[in-house]
Design a protein around this nucleic acid. Structure first.
Lengths: 148, 148
DNA sequence: TTACTTCTTTATAATCATTATAATTAGTTT
DNA sequence: AAACTAATTATAATGATTATAAAGAAGTAA
């Protein structure tokens, strides 16, 4: 049902007064249908064929537009570039320490952690970020094979 | 007891065959005693007085050395530069959305989240990262004051 | 101590993601 | 269609981080 996500997203954008340009349509569609967490550059390269004149700035600009509309989240890690994630349900990410693969998983929200943090620090809590790190099945298998 | 942390850290380094240079000593000491989460550049500037000839590369190099020894963790956020945190107990961070202040808080580890993630995704889990975001008391007060 | 080896630091340049700018183009409204 | 506004493009600028090569300091073994 990726078509549903895309249509909903376009409606959301229109309602907040954002114009649907061909570039925006393509970026959103790529984010949804690629089922990945691409970098800005990956998006840029993937759309190069259809939009030979598109500028990298357009990708960045529109990713920010989407973030402001709540459609997209930016994922930032150490050295590498940011990755962008089309927001559907609330989910968390598990990331392979070896190959960098990012996989979604679902878990009920961590409200009690937020409450504790609020209580201890006096902050008004808005949100949280959680990521789990480990070794994906593929990399685990590869290690197994090459083990002496 | 910051002296304890520093001495332990130096022992750890020595045991893993890392030389204790004056620069390394100073960087570690600053990380521990500043009670902050400084960027590489902040460390560089803070030590400028004592080490007028120190290169930024030295700061980065040694922060990496410390990370490899498990003494320091890198905290990466969106646009800004990485921040570095001397590892003492296991703790989490709460970050002010308005002023960027980072405050530590303690919470029992989230093993059950790790277990669920491992189960659902088939990963071998190594670690996780959790951050809470919100508004710190200072910024909340400031907003209150300027409210109409 | 001396010579030799190995790390570490320094200074500098290079890289690379991201953002800013200004000019052009496309959409929308009247 | 005219006028206004927003979006895109091309390009340059920024800024954090890393790579490189030369110089310096420490460790070891004779």
């Amino acid at each position: 049902m990726p078509g549903v996500f895309l249509k909903d997203a376009l409606v959301t954008l229109k309602e907040s007064g954002v114009r649907i340009t061909p570039q925006r349509h393509a970026i959103l569609e790529y984010l949804i249908t690629s089922h990945s967490h691409p970098t800005a550059d990956e998006i840029y390269k993937a759309l190069e064929e259809d939009f030979p004149n598109m500028s990298v700035a357009t990708v960045y600009n529109n990713l920010r537009v989407f973030q402001n509309s709540g459609l997209v989240k930016e994922l930032t890690y150490g050295d590498a570039s940011s990755r962008f994630d089309f927001v559907t349900h609330d989910h968390y990410h598990i990331i392979c320490d070896d190959c960098g693969k990012i996989v979604d998983f679902y878990h009920p929200g961590l409200e009690e952690v937020e409450h504790l943090a609020a209580h201890v620090t006096g902050f008004q809590v808005n949100s949280h970020r959680l990521e789990v790190y480990g070794t994906c099945p593929d990399c685990a298998a590869a290690k197994q094979t090459q083990a002496k």
